[in-house]
């Protein structure tokens, strides 16, 4: 099933490149392959970053809560 999903993703991304596209305007050659790779991994990269940020925020929240608890105890 996973294999099938990967193949579908690849087909969808490739189709995207050749249908809804416009020329790149940067003076740097971005490279179609480099764009394709980013699009293929967009979900994973975005998901991983969102999860990491959420975990970081959670840690921060817990740390703040613990800290404020300690402050109250010592007061």
């Amino acid at each position: 099933m996973k294999q099938m999903n990967r193949v579908l993703n690849l087909v969808a991304a490739t189709a995207c490149i050749f249908t809804i596209c416009q020329p790149a305007h940067g003076y740097i050659d971005a490279g179609s392959g480099s764009y394709l790779l980013q699009i293929l991994f967009a979900g994973i990269l975005g998901g991983a970053f969102a999860a990491k940020s959420a975990f970081g925020n959670l840690k921060l929240m817990v740390a703040r809560k613990l800290h404020s608890g300690k402050g109250k105890d010592s007061a």
Binding site: A13, C16, I17, F18, I20, C21, Q22, P23, A24, D29, A30, G31, S32, Y35, L36, Q38, I39, F41, A42, G43, I44, L45, G46, G47, A48, F49, A50
Partner: peptide
Amino acid sequence: RRATPQGAFGKNALLG
């Protein structure tokens, strides 16, 4: 053709 696909790479993906 060299092409730029649109609408496929969000800000979270860029930061990721």
